[in-house]
Amino acid sequence: MSGRAAGLAPLIGATAGLIVWALHFGAIYLANAIACGRGLAGHRLFGQPIIPVLILAATALALLLLLGIGMRARRRPRVRDGAGVRHFLARLTLATTLLAALAVTWEGAAVLLVGPCG
């Protein structure tokens, strides 16, 4: 049997958007925790408070990655192949990426409304 038949990579690939969400979530939580825990929240980057700049940059990067994943999924075969599983996984990728984009946007937007350390 071929390696392709035995592999699980396409299924894991269908969750790529959600993996990006998890990395983004972990990164912004960690950044804020370290900044508050170590008294770095008052530092500035490009003349702006460091935490909002870092979080907005991480959010923009995550959204760009999600856009890339979504566009790649749209290029996948739209015509159903033999068993339709690749087509299904491409649609699953698109849907999970959309959900991830929504979550990333909501979480990143919090920095516009709430101060980092209280």
């Binding site: 912004i28 804020n32 508050c36 959900l99 979550a103 909501w106 709430v114 980092p116 350390c117």
Partner: peptide, 19 residues
């Protein structure tokens, strides 16, 4: 826990309501 950190979890709590 710092308020911005709480907000990340609050936003994720809203997001999970979507699926």
């Amino acid at each position: 826990i710092p308020p911005l950190s709480l907000s990340f979890f609050s936003a994720a709590s809203f997001a999970v309501a979507v699926p």
